[in-house]
């Protein structure tokens, strides 16, 4: 098969800037859903060790040079960017790379903008480094993660345009209040 041109679902939609906030493309290069087989949890932990990672506990994201591991539900996590090959035979592995887009909201007040869409407490003292959650963004289900440069959200690729629109409206509304 000829090599096709890869385009992001966010092409032409981001960056979006309002006030001090910036919404940018943070789509991971690779996402693999990891669901350890029954009784193999310890083996999965062992296999993740050389990558500097561990299987994320509920509401947690683990970060290392190789990538990240984020909890996505009971008995399931996403391995982000890292190669899942060491987990072969230990867990149900599903390539999710093309199913999601990643959005990063950065800048002072990012939590205030997202408070309009995500019904959980995202303030740094509650949702600090290493925090993650499954939570809706507006009506779209999402994986929300604290990242070094802001808050990142994984959303369904098919909803990229709606997500950028909704978050953009929240950013603009917050910026308008700050100017007033």
């Amino acid at each position: 098969m000829p090599s096709l041109i890869t385009t992001s679902a966010l092409q032409g939609l981001v960056p979006v800037r309002h006030g001090a906030l910036a919404l940018t493309d943070a789509t991971p290069a690779r996402i693999t859903s990891v669901a350890p087989f029954k009784g193999r949890e310890a083996d999965v932990a062992q296999a993740l060790k050389p990558l500097g990672l561990r299987f994320a506990a509920p509401n947690q994201v683990v970060e290392a040079a190789a990538g990240r591991c984020v909890w996505t539900g009971p008995g399931q996590a996403f391995l982000i960017d890292a190669d899942p090959a060491p987990l072969t035979g230990l867990a149900a592995l599903t390539d999710q790379s093309d199913g999601w887009v990643g959005l990063r909201l950065s800048g002072p007040g990012a939590e205030d903008a997202l408070a309009r869409l995500i019904p959980i407490d995202l303030r740094p003292q509650v949702f600090g480094a290493g925090s993650a959650a499954r939570a809706p963004v507006g009506h779209m289900l999402s994986v929300v993660m604290r990242a070094p440069e802001g808050i990142e959200m994984l959303l369904f690729r098919s909803m990229a345009r709606a997500a950028v629109h909704e978050i953009g409206v929240a950013m603009a509304a917050l910026a308008a209040r700050q100017q007033a």
Binding site: P58, T72, G73, P74, A133, R134, A135, P136, L141
Partner: peptide, 8 residues
């Protein structure tokens, strides 16, 4: 069913 969350 926690459909907008963890799926439990």
């Amino acid at each position: 069913y926690h459909e907008q969350g963890c799926g439990a």
